[in-house]
Amino acid sequence: MALLDIKNLSVHFGTEARPIIAVEHLDLQIDAGEVVGIVGESGSGKSVTSLALMGLIDAPGRVSAESFSFDGRNLLTLPKRERRAMLGRDIAMIFQDPMTSLNPCFTVGDHLIETLAVHEGGSRKALRNRALELLTQVEIPDPARRMAAYPHQLSGGMSQRVMIALAIACNPRLLIADEPTTALDVTVQAQVLELLLRLQRERGMALMLITHDLGVVAETAHRVVVMYAGQVMETGKVPSIFTQPRHPYTEALLSALPENNIGRERLQTIPGVVPGAYDRPQGCLLAPRCQYAQESCRTTRPTLASPDAGSQVRCFFPLHTSGPKE
């Protein structure tokens, strides 16, 4: 039984009559202790999926799903209060921009102590010690002094470490990291990622790593989910998904990586853009941009199929099914 089990999740914005589809028919399972990378271009629905998971989609957004359970508990029917209690305790999240994700009026210590007090309680002194310990765990030097620092006195990398400390404060079983390194300096990115993975290993928590950087995923994840325009295009294990991508989109993403373009004059790109809110193709969502698209791809939409255990693909003509194609 998976720790997180999502079946047929849809998130719509806009009006009932003219919905804007952010995510549709999304299936996602994450096992305990598993690292799952979610990749896709901007606007592919990665972040919306994670916000839906956290119950942070506000009106006019609408979330619906066949199954939406965490540790056997249905998140959609759970009373609000209980669901909230799970946030920060069982499921935690860190965001893209750490500099704006900390309240400018509160010190680092205020943030940590508040979160610990809400979920675990205890004496002020005990909470303070726990907070100090957490700062040490995220490798913040001189934690006692940092406790009194305000967010504007911290660097981006330092802020993200504080955000991570906040996220792991109550030993969550699933940590969602939404582009945790995108807003940071290149030099700190690797350090923060390494920290995240070390904490994941030590604590055996599941990690949902949302990113548009396939390189990061290749090095860290056990499994990859490729999203496009609100749909899952392909899921597969690492490294097979990188050596034998089944979906043309995955293949295109891989061939756009700089390391796969060594010796070429120009970087390969994917022509066109992600479909907008009101111009979603009738057939396969990728059809207008797909070099393999056939007539049937333009008229009917493929479903997610499982060619073999541990992988899924949404394509009528998957690649690499009987040996490499190209």
């Binding site: 909230r84 920060g88 305790r89 935690a92 999240m93 965001f95 994700s101 979160t115 809400v118």
Partner: peptide, 8 residues
């Protein structure tokens, strides 16, 4: 949003 995500 981050505060809400911490279950406050």
């Amino acid at each position: 949003r981050a505060a809400r995500a911490r279950g406050l």
